[in-house]
Write a protein that binds this DNA or RNA. Structure first.
Lengths: 200, 200, 200, 200
DNA sequence: CAGTAAACGAGACGGTACGTCGTGTCTTCTG
DNA sequence: CAGAAGACACGACGTACCGTCTCGTTTACTG
């Protein structure tokens, strides 16, 4: 968030008829930096291009839209948060949520994610990509937690979708209202309810 | 939704040193129409001004930001959905959610709401207003349902916030991903979980 | 050519719903300066906009094309060279040509004119405007010299067009090849031929 | 003019460490075609490269500028118009001019020539090459007509330059204003004046 | 009942960003 | 080692909006 500043007075000419990894990295880093500093409001292709010392066509060549770029920036944050079922869905969800919020809070990823959701509200293609590709991939692990619980008989299989929606929405609400810090106390309660067995 | 088209060749000059209600109505109607037709992507002050046959300063005079205008457009939809506690929180929530989704789906309000959430991601003031004024007002009734349930002893008072967050997030997830139709089946399950008594 | 440099940190806001003369003047001065310094190669709307401290839309609002702007820059050089017939066509033409070349050489007008001719080679509208409006206006006086000579019986009326073409082309050749200085010696000879009486 | 369209899916790989004549021909043909269809406005190295199926570096390797390429395209039009003095300068010039205009009008050469003149207005090197190499070569024959007339004593030797300038300018005026058709009637009159003996 | 104050429409202003195109350079890979 | 292929940084293109600023007009409220 600080190294990739305006720096890079390095000339990155073409390295032949193929993608220049240095340019791509510089663009992603610049996008991340812009988001970290100015959020969605300052996130323009021009700004990223300037900050990266890259030409706009280079950006458009590899990312067909702002949303595309946002998704890759988000994905580039390695910090893959794994989630392995331990036998207690509520505890697994609580644990995972805390890690996710820490990830959102401690890196520019929270802002990136908010930008992505905002972008999807004005760009139908972005919304489709979000719904059909980005989210399913990101939610693989969490869905796995629910599937494992269902396999154990803890929750009904047909309720996975609804519970997943509750889980996603809960996170979205706090990140979109920028209340990740204040909202932490609500996590255990919410996760217990989402994970509650149906036969009570 | 179609009457307020480009129409309005009516001259609405000043009516003296006070706000002209006809102009305000025309602006709100134009904003609504623009949102209905082009969504957040087409929602610009210029577009609203053109459509309303109003000067841009007239808009800025009464609404200090796009978010301000969006909130009033949303509020202008009279269809206030009331929610009176009947003694069964789960049923009350289910009922209310269905009405809300019907409202979002059958009017431009869904698009307005999505635009508002998107706008709040780029405008900190808008986010603050959303969090501290708009949402609390809108959620008065729903909060009332939870309060009544807590008063009855059905749910713990200290869990109201978490359950409310689950409720809000669930709705946001479906409206933001434009899945209000497909998601209906999940409503009863989710509402039952949100309303579940803690002592099982 | 020097006063209108990068200077002008003056804010020229709108003066209401009408053209701001200060902006127009600044744009014309900037265009003139850019042409004087960089010639046709540096003449871009962006460059003029930057130099003038004006927005691009302001330029496009009042001049629909680069050629349009060039023509007005050329016309703005007051130095209207008058040409009043004295009874000797050859001498009149020689005199007028010398003044014209001095005008082209001593001001940025020569470069402006060359830019205009170049522009007309890529923009059909510019060519049409050049042919049907710009040139006829500029050539009114010279045509008057020929008409007076014809009225005196010195040259046949039906030869005016051909002689005018010779006159124009002669000037174009020298300005387009940037040989106004070296070519001065040719003026009297050429003008004598153009003005020669037909009956020899 | 139409065969060399987008065609040429032929692979023209390197033929070793020397210039590939097929590539050069394809590039010249493409340049000619682009000029014929879109004129100077569409004449970009990119466009020629695309049309020729050639790499841009291949073009830059053999022609150091657009002007360079234009000159070779113009020269490649074999239709060398010869001009042999017959003893009557006026008739020779008239004849030569008609052939030149037919050449300019019936082939893309007119557009090429206009492009070349335009290009010379933004590129000083192109202007120098035009003045010192291209024009002298092209005008060898015409200059020969004047020289022969001077040798015969029909015109003074010291007036050759001025008369040549008149001749060139006359042609330029009509080609640059795209009036080759309408201007034909002026040819004989103009040529008679250019060729007029000085002692009248 | 004249004078003032404010809201109105209109739209120009200096800007920023858009997404595309062309520039001239560079590098890889193929023949 | 020439050639195609095409990526690269750069910057211009013409358009859309931004939020601000006057303008001239049209009332209603004041003194």
């Amino acid at each position: 968030m600080k190294a990739e500043k305006a720096a890079t007075p390095i000339r990155r000419a073409s390295i032949g008829a193929r993608r220049n990894p240095a340019s791509q990295a510089a663009i992603l880093a610049a996008a991340r930096a812009v988001l970290a500093e100015d959020g969605y409001a300052g996130f323009s292709i021009d700004a990223v291009s300037r900050r990266a010392g890259a030409g706009k066509p280079t950006i458009y060549r590899w990312w067909k839209s702002r949303a595309d770029l946002l998704m890759e920036v988000y994905a580039a944050e390695k910090a893959r948060i794994r989630a392995v079922p331990t036998g207690d869905l509520g505890r697994d969800l609580t644990e995972h949520t805390k890690e996710l919020w820490a990830f959102w809070w401690g890196t520019p990823s929270g802002r990136t994610f908010r930008a992505l959701l905002a972008e999807a509200q004005s760009d139908p293609d972005a919304l489709a990509a979000l719904r059909e590709k980005f989210l399913p991939e990101r939610l693989l692990d969490v869905r796995g937690l629910f599937a494992a619980a269902a396999a154990r008989g803890d929750i009904p299989t047909e309720e996975i979708e609804a519970r997943l929606a509750l889980y996603i929405g809960f996170n979205w609400f706090y990140v979109l209202t920028d209340q990740l810090e204040a909202g932490q106390a609500a996590i255990p309660v919410a996760m217990r309810l989402i994970a509650a067995s149906s036969r009570s």
